[in-house]
Computed example of a mutant assay.
Amino acid sequence: MKYRMKAMFFVYILLLATISFTPGECDTKVFNLKDYGAVQGGNVDISQALLKAWGDACNWKGGSKLEVPSATYLVNPVILKGPCRGPIEFHNSGTLKGPQGLRGDSLIEFQYIDGLTLNGGVFDGQGPPKQAAPGLPTLLRFTFITNSRAQLVKLINSQSTHFHLFGCKQIVIDQISISSPENSPNTDGIKIGESNVLRIVSSKLAFLIRITRFI
């Protein structure tokens, strides 16, 4: 009996060591944007630094966090694309602003990700335009995103729609704020298309929600 208990104790210690030192899906690694050369102040484009940081975070096997430090950053249109190798958090403690006079589909777009958390920060579209026109970008876009959430996010001054979700499933939008000046043309708050199981809670929307073929 004595030897059996010692053997069981040895196996238990060995198991703990294996769990402690073997990388797994529960590992979380932080990828700080400043380590990729992003310049603070809002005058130098940080798009390439953001894409590089996202690529490394998305390819990390396990949980990852892309950290945007507290500051103002200028960013041109980027697509942050999955699928990723584990759950990923985009933690924004700063302000990401687009250049004035920007044209295109969207400023920041997340695509094909399962298990995304968009947490905090300000997204500034540097609008509004003087008049509605084709080719003005959506501020934030989720495309084919599943089992994810956006929380504590502030969207301001979009030149077009502030937040557009398409082909998404199981999304929680919690404590977001959307606003633009009263005379902003065609700056909807949220547009939703071809999506299901979405919840919007504890949020302040200054403009309407448009839903297209919402299931």
Rank of each mutant, 00 (worst) to 15 (best):
212 T>W: 10
174 D>G: 02
205 L>A: 01
68 V>P: 07
200 I>T: 08
113 I>P: 05
98 G>P: 05
159 Q>H: 05
120 G>Y: 03
187 T>I: 14
26 C>W: 09
150 A>H: 02
191 K>H: 10
81 K>S: 15
192 I>W: 03
64 S>P: 11
148 S>G: 06
76 N>R: 12
75 V>L: 12
1 M>W: 08
199 R>E: 13
208 L>V: 11
34 K>L: 12
189 G>C: 08
106 S>L: 00
145 I>H: 06
21 F>I: 12
89 E>H: 06
125 G>E: 01
41 G>L: 04
15 L>G: 11
200 I>H: 00
212 T>N: 11
173 I>F: 04
207 F>D: 01
92 N>L: 03
179 S>A: 13
74 L>H: 05
156 I>Y: 02
213 R>F: 04
48 Q>T: 13
77 P>Y: 11
21 F>K: 03
89 E>L: 08
33 L>D: 06
103 R>N: 04
62 G>V: 08
103 R>L: 12
88 I>L: 15
39 V>R: 14
175 Q>S: 14
110 F>N: 00
153 V>C: 06
171 I>L: 07
19 I>L: 15
122 V>I: 14
82 G>K: 02
173 I>E: 04
107 L>M: 10
11 V>D: 12
26 C>D: 09
88 I>A: 03
149 R>Y: 10
104 G>L: 11
80 L>E: 07
185 P>D: 00
148 S>T: 08
159 Q>A: 12
148 S>R: 05
190 I>Y: 02
19 I>M: 12
167 G>E: 03
51 L>P: 04
67 E>G: 06
107 L>S: 04
176 I>V: 14
31 F>T: 09
174 D>T: 04
148 S>M: 03
12 Y>A: 15
86 G>R: 06
170 Q>M: 05
72 T>Y: 00
92 N>K: 01
188 D>E: 08
74 L>P: 06
172 V>Q: 10
180 S>A: 15
72 T>L: 05
28 T>G: 00
183 N>T: 15
168 C>Y: 04
92 N>E: 02
12 Y>C: 12
134 P>T: 13
52 K>T: 14
197 V>G: 04
171 I>P: 03
91 H>V: 09
110 F>L: 05
205 L>Q: 01
202 S>Q: 10
126 Q>A: 15
194 E>R: 12
208 L>D: 08
104 G>E: 11
176 I>L: 11
201 V>E: 06
203 S>R: 03
107 L>T: 07
138 T>C: 02
100 Q>G: 11
31 F>M: 08
91 H>F: 10
124 D>L: 01
157 N>P: 08
123 F>H: 09
90 F>N: 01
65 K>A: 06
176 I>P: 01
118 L>G: 02
208 L>M: 07
162 H>I: 03
207 F>R: 07
62 G>I: 07
